[in-house]
Amino acid sequence: MPATWQDDQAHIEVIDPRAPNGPRAKAIIPRSIVLQVYKTNPVAYENLRCAKEVLEDPCRIFEGTREHQSGGWCFVGRPGTWHIRERVIVPFPCDRVFAVYLNPRMVVYAWRAEKTDPDDPLSPIGFAQRYRRLVWTRTFSPSS
């Protein structure tokens, strides 16, 4: 699904982590963040493609990403490929997950790979201690 733009923000339709069974919500990517990574960290800019893929098709959604802050979400998934260097695209490793962090206002502020947890290979390592709760999980896996 294409992203839409409004007021210097890109919007991506996602499962609403506040009401996963309700209407979809909008995750926001501010232009200022896009420009920042484009001008300092091109690989992270390219891997915004992975962030979009995970936001649109997550395996897990966690709530409560900060110890002293309410809200905040982590969308977790496995993109097909990712950039490991500029112009170097490889399959995303099977022993990693890609995590996308949103603040309480649904603004995307971080995206990166994480090691997987031994108890759930579709969650970041230590998920039980790191996040307040699991709010959504994919109930089936696409046939491979």
């Binding site: 960290n41 690989v43 260097r85 990166r112 994480e114």
Partner: peptide, 20 residues
Amino acid sequence: NEYGDCVEYLCANEAVVADR
């Protein structure tokens, strides 16, 4: 990063794996 109230620093233009 004002949206995450965090400071980001990277010294290589490569993909990262987080180690919390």
